[in-house]
């Protein structure tokens, strides 16, 4: 408590110093001009602002998480961190802007998978970025997908549900939040791993309308993130399968797919990236700062309240994870698009 206060004071002092020094540095930078002034070693320069691009509108969970991280990162680095929303096209607008920004450490971005992974894989989206356009710095959240039924459903556990769906292919309907969303990939993975077949209903409006249709008995199975279930606080839901490696701390009674004998590991991953081509020392500094901030108990606690479990990965592990996800999605994508038509 005390230490955070001191840190806040310190950073305020540094900020002030930065502001007064601003006019000087401005002249200096103006004189040196050129797009990439040779300032790598003294990054982050006092008085400059780090833009944290969020590819979603204010209020979404990517945005709220970023707005929790930004002030903590500000303290850690001693410069302003400004959240800039660039929403649109399921994140594509913001990701494109991020990929095209200068790799000088003053622009970073919050990304959410699967969207950031899938967008470049679908040629019809016309995305101009790929996985290589970004330098993943840190993963913050892994929010597993779950399968849930209503409390009064006849399916007590995952096995019963899968067996039924195998015997009656396409009879049980399940929600997704649209084409190529996390839920869509999750269910395609489930179908592939179990041989069951579901009737997927795409609620492109989002998780809330999927949940409404599920609770209103218009659809049999709810598919969504752990956080959707926790946030809703509903008593009518029975989660019968979590697609994570371990049980979710928020839903301790819900079995994982692995426990039930199916190899499915799907979820939404959120993290922070910089445009590729960042100088190595800047990348290291950013990675360290983000690592500290993400694992800061206060930040973890605030995210837990939002139903977002922290699952930190450093840069190298995050790159591995991302690549693995990309391979998996490349495999599933053709089947998914064929099903839709």
């Amino acid at each position: 408590m005390k230490s955070t206060k001191i840190a806040a004071l310190l950073s305020a002092g540094i900020l002030l110093a930065g502001l007064t020094a601003c006019s000087n540095t401005a002249d200096a930078a103006g004189g040196a001009s050129g797009p990439a002034a040779k300032s790598e070693s003294n990054w982050p320069q006092k008085g400059k602002t780090i833009d944290l691009i969020v590819a979603y509108a204010p209020g979404g969970s990517v945005d709220t998480a970023a707005r929790v991280v930004a002030p903590a990162l500000e303290k850690e680095l001693g410069v302003n961190v400004q959240v800039t929303n660039k929403p649109g096209a399921g994140g594509q607008i913001g990701y494109t802007a991020l990929a095209n920004s200068k790799p000088d450490g003053y622009t970073i971005g919050a990304v959410s998978a699967p969207s950031v992974v899938v967008t470049p894989l679908d040629p019809s989206r016309g995305a101009t970025f790929t996985r290589e356009s970004f330098l993943p710095l840190a993963r913050q959240v892994f929010d597993p997908q779950v399968i849930a039924v209503k409390k009064d459903s006849k399916f007590e556990d995952l096995g019963a549900l899968i067996d039924y769906a195998k015997a009656h292919p396409g009879e049980l309907s399940a929600t997704t939040t649209g084409i190529q969303t996390g839920e869509h990939f999750a269910m395609t993975s489930v179908e592939e791993a179990t041989g069951a077949k579901f009737n997927l209903v795409a609620f492109s409006e989002g998780a809330a309308s999927a949940m409404a249709a599920f609770l209103g008995d218009h659809v049999d199975i709810y598919v969504g993130n752990v956080s959707d279930i926790v946030d809703s606080g509903s008593n009518d839901i029975r989660v019968i399968g979590v697609m994570g490696a371990e049980r979710s701390p928020s839903l301790p009674d819900a079995h994982t797919f692995k426990e039930e004998g199916y190899d499915v590991d799907e979820g939404t991953a959120r993290g922070y990236v910089a445009p590729a081509g960042l100088p190595e020392d800047v990348a290291t500094k950013l990675e360290d700062a983000l690592g500290k901030v993400i694992q800061d108990p206060a930040v973890v606690d605030q995210l837990n309240k939002l139903g977002l479990p922290t699952a930190y990965l450093n840069s190298a592990d995050y790159i591995d994870y991302w690549t693995k996800q990309e391979t998996q999605y490349k495999k599933l994508l053709p089947q998914m698009m064929a099903d839709a038509k």
């Binding site: 103006g30 050129g34 002034a37």
Partner: peptide, 20 residues
């Protein structure tokens, strides 16, 4: 917009204008 609401309006593309 920027200071009170943290809503960013576009800054200049030129670095020298940007820094002031």
């Amino acid at each position: 917009f920027t200071d009170l609401l943290s809503v960013t309006l576009p800054l200049s593309m030129f670095g020298f204008l940007n820094t002031i």
